[in-house]
Amino acid sequence: TEDARKEAKKIIDNGGSPDEAAKFIKKYGLSEDQARELVKRAL
């Protein structure tokens, strides 16, 4: 979702790792793979 993508970008912009961002956005109901893909797109 757009919200999850924004959250991921915010985490990374604040110095978080892509892994942290992926873990965080899994709470939106995404699978591990979906979360990682979304983080990649957010970069």
Rank of each mutant, 00 (worst) to 15 (best):
T1H: 14
T1F: 15
T1I: 15
T1D: 10
T1C: 15
T1E: 12
T1G: 09
T1W: 15
T1Y: 15
E2S: 10
E2F: 06
E2Y: 03
E2A: 10
D3S: 12
D3Q: 14
D3G: 08
D3V: 14
D3W: 13
A4L: 14
A4E: 01
R5T: 09
R5W: 15
K6Y: 07
K6Q: 10
K6L: 12
K6E: 09
E7K: 06
E7I: 12
E7C: 15
E7F: 04
E7V: 11
A8S: 02
A8Y: 06
A8N: 01
K9P: 01
K9S: 03
K9D: 02
K10C: 14
K10N: 08
K10F: 10
I11A: 02
I11R: 03
I11Q: 02
I11D: 01
I11T: 02
I12N: 03
I12M: 11
D13K: 11
D13V: 07
D13I: 08
D13Y: 07
N14T: 07
N14I: 07
N14G: 12
N14W: 08
N14F: 09
G15L: 03
G15F: 06
G15T: 04
G15N: 03
G16D: 05
G16L: 08
S17Q: 02
S17P: 05
S17T: 14
S17H: 07
P18M: 12
P18K: 04
P18C: 15
P18A: 13
P18N: 05
D19S: 10
D19G: 07
D19H: 07
D19F: 07
D19N: 05
D19W: 11
D19A: 11
E20L: 08
E20F: 09
E20S: 04
A21T: 05
A21G: 01
A21W: 15
A21E: 08
A22T: 10
A22E: 12
A22S: 06
K23Q: 14
K23N: 14
K23H: 12
K23Y: 09
F24G: 13
F24M: 14
F24E: 14
F24K: 13
F24L: 14
I25F: 06
I25M: 08
I25A: 08
I25Y: 06
I25Q: 03
K26H: 08
K26I: 14
K26S: 11
K27V: 06
K27N: 08
Y28M: 10
Y28V: 03
G29N: 05
G29M: 02
G29K: 03
L30F: 12
L30P: 01
S31Q: 01
S31T: 13
E32T: 05
E32G: 01
E32Q: 03
E32H: 03
D33Q: 10
Q34F: 06
Q34S: 05
Q34A: 09
Q34W: 03
A35F: 10
A35E: 03
A35K: 00
A35R: 00
R36P: 03
R36F: 10
R36N: 10
E37N: 06
E37R: 05
E37S: 06
E37W: 00
E37C: 13
E37A: 09
L38P: 00
L38T: 04
L38Y: 01
L38M: 09
L38H: 02
L38E: 04
L38I: 15
L38F: 03
L38A: 05
L38K: 00
V39K: 00
V39A: 02
K40M: 13
K40Q: 13
R41F: 07
R41L: 14
R41Y: 08
R41V: 11
A42S: 06
A42M: 15
A42E: 07
A42L: 15
L43F: 05
